[in-house]
Structure formats: C-alpha cells, structure tokens
Design a protein around this nucleic acid. Structure first.
Lengths: 113, 113
DNA sequence: TTTAGATATCGATATTTCTCGATATATGAA
DNA sequence: TTCATATATCGAGAAATATCGATATCTAAA
C-alpha cells in the first residue's frame, strides 16, 4: 500500500478524518470554497498579498455561531491537518483552503479506502 | 447544497469521518477490500448465503491486535456509519464493505468538500 | 439438554474532544 | 507610548471516545 501516487499516507488521512469529524469544521471548509458567496469582501487583502480567497477569523466566526476561541481552535485544527493554510496580514489572520491537500485526500479516498 | 446527486448529506458524512478517525478502523476497511489477500478463506460461507467477501469477526480480530470486544465494537461503529454491512450465518457474524455507501462517500468528498 | 465456541454487551477507567470565558499577544492607529 | 481591535492560548468542566476484562447471548454439536 504505497503512497507514491497519492501523496498522502494513512496517518495524515486519519488526521484529516479527525479534523472533519465535526459538523462545524466541515461547514467552514465548505464555505471557504466560495468565499464571495459566504463572506463579505476581505477589503484588507490586496493583490500583492497573494492570498486570494482568504477569509479572516472574525468573519468566519460570525457565520458559525461559535465563540471566538473555539473558532480559532477549529481553524488551527483544520490547518494542522493540512486542509487549510493561513497567512497573517496586519492584524488579521486569513485562512483559505489548501486545494493541493484536498486533492491528495480525494485521491487517497479513491484509491486507498 | 443539495444531496440529490450525491446520495449523502453532511450529517452522514460526519458520521463516516468519525468512524474513520481511528487508524485501526481504517485498516479494517482497507483489508476488507481484498479479503482473499488478508484473511484465510471463510469456509463456512456458501454461495447461497449471498455474502461474498464477508469475513468473520475473529479473523478480523486476529489481524488487528486488539481485543475481541474492541473488535466487535469497531465493526459496529463501521456498520452504523454505513461503511460495512453484516450478516449473521450460524455462529459467525460476517462483515464486508458496503461499496454503495463508499461510492456515495467518494462522490460527497469530490463534490461537497 | 449440556457444552463449547463465536460474538455482543456491560461496566469501568483513562484519554481525548468540545466549548467556553478569561487572559495574553500582536498589530495598527492615535 | 497608549489604546483598540484581531487573534491565539490557557485553564476548566462536561461530554465523548478508547479499550479492556468479564459476562451474557446465540448457535451448533455432542
């Protein structure tokens, strides 16, 4: 059961399963697919930041109904699993999907599950 | 975010993520892909039972290194999530993959994640 | 019907996760 | 520097999960 073609091993996949074993975290990942639909424009991000699609923590919080600290921790869990990436810009931290990891995860599901 | 084409909603997907957020349970599902490779022949299953690919609990246990009770519970978790189906035949309970659910789950990942 | 084997369930303890409010840290503005 | 805002981290209690051994149940065989 090699990981060569998939780019992901069982251990990382299990970490992703854990990250997704919570409805709110799944919902966050889904909303980040279409930031323009679910969030107001991130006016402090510029083209030069190179972080298109990123959404700040407080905007995510306002859509989830959970506390600020929980939102921060959920995003950290998603990030540690590799599903999202983050960038601090000024006083905001932006999160966006890591499509590369998500693709690898899809391939893992398709070929190793 | 309709489930019409996918056949699976967010709630069921989260239950599957929970079931898979454990290395041993993932491993069981993987081994059940190729029963002939990972298990000895299930000599008590006949063609008429209509449960090809099923493996009995004790054979699964002997490959996992966990206790009998934990094996039974893990299989129950996998079954309740829909990933496997079971059939009692005589004194044995056989488990095999539910490929239909797994396909739906793959489609969910591909289109809803 | 008694016995033996296969599996499920129960009860318990240890660990992990959930979720919050409080507090700390970082950054930009005044 | 001081203040305000954004985010992260800490500490805690409640709930859920992991995992076991012991016991119960179910089935086939004797």
């Amino acid at each position: 059961m090699g990981k060569e073609i998939v780019g992901m091993d069982d251990g990382q996949a299990v970490e992703i399963f854990k990250a997704l074993s919570n409805q709110t975290r799944v919902r966050i990942l889904q909303m980040l697919r279409e930031p323009a639909v679910y969030f107001s424009p991130q006016i402090h991000i510029t083209k030069e930041d190179g972080f298109d699609g990123g959404v700040c923590v407080s905007d995510i919080r306002s859509k989830t109904g959970i506390s600020q600290s929980t939102t921060s921790q959920y995003l950290s869990i998603l990030q540690q699993s590799g599903l999202v990436e983050m960038k601090r810009i000024g006083q905001w931290t932006y999160y966006r999907r890591n499509e590369e990891t998500i693709k690898q995860f899809e391939r893992y599901i398709g070929s190793h599950l």
